[in-house]
């Protein structure tokens, strides 16, 4: 049994073991570099002062969230396309959406923490903030659908279709919220990018952040995928075990 599990384990990873290790190591190194550059090496912003350093986490987190949801959509489409249909894509979609939700939640938290010192409020009805919040709830719904137990194929189909429906809504939400905040408030009080042309060490730090969060996404994906794979197997074996137990060990 444990041998069987070991076999299952070897096939369960998304990345080859060595590659996974390298990604993990690079993730840690880049997070260390981001912390060093973000907190010490980069200069404080002229307008925003130290508070601007939150950008080095906020923007990469948002980026990683978009990547994650993009992958969810792509994997769902690959599942729906009969020629590429595979349980792999279902697991990838689910794992990526969950990680994306974590990153979206983090983006909102960080945005709030950034907003307080810069805008003076924890929450502002900024177009991007609002559409990110709606995005959060859209994918919360997607994961709620995923969590409903069903036959693997039924669940996979249902999830894949939901992912596509949800994704279609993203640009509509984005446009509508954008219009809402620009048509009705001619002068936007604040602009999330108070200085769009960031240069030198600050730009470098931001790039390090993007690299770090992308690597972190890959590393988390690798683990979360493996977990999804193992839990699927567990569902099967646990059912067998329960039946075996009920029947008093008689097969």
């Amino acid at each position: 049994m444990s041998e069987k599990r070991q076999n299952r384990d070897d096939r369960s990873a998304l990345l080859p073991r060595a590659v996974g290790r390298v990604v993990d190591a690079l993730t840690l190194i880049s997070i260390g570099a981001l912390t060093f550059f973000g907190l010490w090496a980069s200069p404080a912003d002229v307008v925003q002062g130290d508070a601007q350093r939150i950008m080095y986490l906020h923007v990469p987190a948002a980026w990683a969230a978009y990547v994650a949801f993009g992958i969810t959509t792509l994997a769902s489409l690959l599942w729906l396309w009969p020629r590429t249909r595979s349980a792999v894509w279902d697991r990838v979609a689910g794992a990526s959406a969950e990680i994306g939700l974590i990153f979206t939640g983090l983006t909102l938290l960080l945005g709030s923490l950034w907003g307080r010192p810069v805008w003076g409020v924890w929450w502002a009805w900024d177009a991007r903030l609002v559409s990110t919040a709606v995005l959060f709830f859209l994918y919360l719904g997607y994961l709620a659908i995923r969590a409903v137990p069903a036959e693997p194929i039924v669940r996979a189909r249902r999830s894949a279709i939901t992912a596509v429906i949800v994704f279609i809504d993203v640009p509509i939400v984005h446009f509508s919220v954008d219009w809402w905040r620009t048509l009705h408030q001619k002068a936007t009080v604040f602009n999330p990018e108070l200085n769009p042309e960031i240069e030198g060490v600050m730009a470098l730090t931001l790039w390090i952040g993007v690299v770090a969060f992308t690597l972190l996404y890959v590393s988390l994906m690798n683990r979360r995928y493996q977990l999804a794979y193992l839990e699927e197997g567990l569902e099967e074996t646990a059912l067998d075990a329960a039946i075996l137990q009920r029947s008093g060990g008689v097969k």
């Binding site: 709606v134 709830f137 719904g141 709620a144 659908i145 939901t162 949800v166 809504d169 509509i172």
Partner: peptide, 13 residues
Amino acid sequence: TLLPLLLLPVLAP
């Protein structure tokens, strides 16, 4: 309980 959670964000626009 699932229907409102799914539908309301989609219908937000």
